[in-house]
Amino acid sequence: MRTALRSQTTATPRSRIVLSAVAALIALALPLLLQESELLLVVEMLVLALWAVSYNLLLGYTGLVSFGHAAYYGVGAYTVALLWSKYGISPLIGLVASAAVTAIISFFTGLFCLRSVRLYFALLTLAVSQVMFTIVFEWYDFTGGDNGIHGIELPGFLSSAPNLYFFVLVVSVVCMLIIKAIVNSPFGGALLCIRENRQRAAFIGIDVKRYELIAFIISSTFSGIAGGLYAFYDRQVFAGLLNWTKSAEPVLVSLIGGMYSFFGPAVGAALFIFLNAFLTRYTTYSALALGALLLMLALVFPGGLAELASLARARLLRRGQHELETDETAAAQPTASERKP
């Protein structure tokens, strides 16, 4: 994934192809290189990466901050789990259904939340997601309550860790590429326009609310798929998947990776999962260490890893007597003062 980011920020198409090929090779070789527990850590990274990239469609590309995206992630996971446990429906069909269910739910919640703008929109998404969390938490007869549903049985071919890895890899990469296509389409351009200036966007004829609603639905739908994949990975779902503490994750990893870069959130997700797993091995005070790292990030590199990467690249290029070219990332990234409300 790190190579994917680099390929995106490097301008020439040839190097992009080479790097994509290298990335694909590494992805194919991972099951041979890693132990099962490490491979499943990568699966976890892929799930969170998809969630973060779909979340960032709202955050980085539309300028809408949602504090309640765990609701859609959780609904996606529960759709897979409930269809399996209540109706014996295969999780594969459940995964498709999770997209449909989250799309429908997010249409209504989006319509409601988008009545407010900016900070109050964020708070409304939080309130709505907590109400959904409570429903899942309390409805013991249907959702299994706070501890949820366990022992989801996957189709036979997914029972081995490498197969599960490839399945999650394909689904998440395909989904991310679809999101990338959306971002690069005229629709994505309109979203960027809304992000920069809602009034101006409305002035040039963009139906702002409608575009925002569609972006919200797309983002939630892919979050739902990510949640569905989580059910594949963990084979259990629990109410905590919808809680606000979970909603913090896509926000955090988007900021860690850099919200103005397409694959930044994916890299942030990988780093976040890695840090969590790594720190927990060495200390029972991992929250302290993680907090300190996040604080450092906020103070020194508010643009996230993407900013770090572009800084490093700029320096490398200068050393190589190259002209400093503005890449996609830098162009899409407004300066701090512009963003100040």
Partner: peptide, 8 residues
Amino acid sequence: REHLIQLL
């Protein structure tokens, strides 16, 4: 900075 960085 942005609200989000402050929140972070």
